[in-house]
Amino acid sequence: MADQSSPVARRLQTVKNIIIVLSGKGGVGKSSVSTQLALNLHASSPTAKVGILDVDLTGPSIPRMLGLDGHGVHQSSSGWVPVYADGPEARLACMSVGFLLKNKGDSVVWRGPKKNGMIRQFLSDVRWGELDYLVIDTPPGTSDEHLSLLEHMAPVHSRLSAVIVTTPQAVALMDAMKCLSFTRAVNLPILGLIENMSGYVCPCCGEISNVFSTGGGEEMARREELRFLGSLPVDTELVTLLDAAEPEKEGSVREGILQQYSSTSSAKLFKKIVERMVEQLG
C-alpha cells in the first residue's frame, strides 16, 4: 500500500475532499468548470475553504479566469504560498504554473518527466493549510499529468473523486468515453458528468441554437450509468467575465469576481450541480 508518510500524503492531510476535473477532449470547459466549481464551493458556506490547483502545465488558464494574471508565488518556510482569489479572507487558494512564468507568453516546453516533477512539487510543497475542497484542473488527454497525479496521490486515494466534462458533439463524447475508461482503470470514483456548451441563446431574438449539438452528455451518462449532474448552455456573460480579467499588478486582487460571478445565469445552474456533487461526498 502507498506510503502514508510521503511528502504528498503529509501535505494533503489537512485536505478533506479532492475533486479532479477531467475531460479527455480539450476546450470543452474544464477550466471554466473548475473555476465555477471552486467559486460555488467557496460560496456554499461562509467558512468553506477551497483550493484550486491547475495542473495544465503547458496551457494554464486558471489564473486568467480568476483574475489573477500576473500574480507570483511566494516562498515561505513552510512551503509555497498559494495566491488567494478572495484577498485577505484567504478562503479561495489558487496555484498554477502560470504564477511561475516571468512572462505570460512564455511557453513551457516540457516532456513528461519534468511535468511529473512539477506536479509532485505542487502536491507536496504548496501550503494549502486546512481545506474543505481541493479542485484540480487537468489538461486534455490521459497521459503524463493524469498518471502522475494519481500516482502521487495514491496515499490519499480514499479522498479522491472526479467529474467529467464534455460538450454534446460526438467527437467530444468519444474522448469523454476514453476518459471514463481511464478513471475505471485507475479506480477513481466519478461524481458525475457535466454537459457544457449545450445550446446558445441568440442575444437578439432568443432563439436557442445547438451550436455543438445537445443532449449527448445526458445520453452518455445514462448509457454508462453515471450520474448526470446537469447541462450548461453557452453563457456569453460568463465567457466575458472569465476572459476579461485585466492583468493586475502584483499583490492586488480584482474586485468583485466572486460577486460578479454569483449574478450570472450560469451560477444559478451550477449551484444545483454542486449540490448534487456535494451530497455524494457526504
Partner: peptide, 14 residues
C-alpha cells in the same frame, strides 16, 4: 455566430 433565425451575428467567444 450567425443566428439561423434572425441572421444577426453575435460573438460567442468575444
Amino acid at each position: 455566430f450567425v443566428c439561423p433565425r434572425c441572421k444577426t451575428e453575435s460573438q460567442i467567444f468575444k
